[in-house]
Write a protein that binds this DNA or RNA. Sequence first.
DNA 1: GTCTATATCGAGATAGAC
DNA 2: GTCTATCTCGATATAGAC
Lengths: 188, 188
Amino acid sequence: MSTAERLIEATQELLWERGYVSTSPRAIQQRSGVGQGSMYHHFEGKPALALAAVRRSAEQLRAAAEADLGGEGSAAGRVRAYLRRERSVLRGCRIGGLAQDPDVVADPELRRPLEETFGWLRGRIAAVLEEGRRRGEFTAPLDPAATAAAIVAVVQGGYVLARSAASPEPFRQAVEGLIALLDAHTAP
Amino acid sequence: MSTAERLIEATQELLWERGYVSTSPRAIQQRSGVGQGSMYHHFEGKPALALAAVRRSAEQLRAAAEADLGGEGSAAGRVRAYLRRERSVLRGCRIGGLAQDPDVVADPELRRPLEETFGWLRGRIAAVLEEGRRRGEFTAPLDPAATAAAIVAVVQGGYVLARSAASPEPFRQAVEGLIALLDAHTAP
DNA sequence: GTCTATATCGAGATAGAC
DNA sequence: GTCTATCTCGATATAGAC
């Protein structure tokens, strides 16, 4: 693997584990096995490296979501698949976790991948719901955009509850609580 | 106001704005107007000060939630009041935001107020839902604990979406999406 | 491209005077 | 109780040799 590649992957891991403010160039060098001079040769500094890493993580998150949402089956089934996918719950969301970091939110360049990722995800889920609605899968009217926002929020909030409890259980409960509400709208 | 009090309030503000790792003793001194020596006289160090501040914020969060959830009216109405309460959405949750901080989650003492707060909140909302269920307010069966977890998660996740978008709108959408799902379970 | 040396600054305290 | 001085360490680079 190339040096730049190793740097990006190490930064992705550290951003996930420690967030942005708490991830140091020194730690990136140690994790990647790349030296000081080499790191600054490939990237201008910590912000540039973080930007590359965040963009990469955002791509991966979109690909994973699309694998669930783009499949065959009913709208409700695809949303359930997305909600119930296996996750490292206690690690939190690699993208959503950064929204808490003041230095990320304050920097428009660093925040943009977050905005784009969640914007895309909400839109993608809304499109799935809209498709289900057109097919007559739902028994009651349902606002696709608002419902999609609630679905994404339950996942992101589930991470917060799980990390607070040091247990994946609240995540699971929140997801199942939402699925039960959605199922009540779904024709059998 | 006492010196200790000023220190706690300044720390509460900074933890809310910047999180734990990114809040320095120096910043606390400047925000509170309390000197170095004085700060270390009243508190052993940053962890002790943060613990006092987090406990205080947790108390305040519980009091605010109880004001909505403990009122008169139907279960659904009290939950709606809780969900629609005016919030500084872009600032995020003073408690939930800390769940992303690795140093907070790694320290059992610092994490405990988070666990207790969300444990209490989920239980309190579950009790409201259970009361509504006994009164026959719901038209379909509904698991109080799971539904409560979903409700709390939507709020916490709403903050994440809003901060990512630099706009309160996704928070509002997620909350309204959830309320619409809940309303479908509620007798008119 | 990669290495080592060096620089500046703030984090997070401790010590002891007042 | 509060103040100022001092200390150590890591964050985040820059410079220049190899």
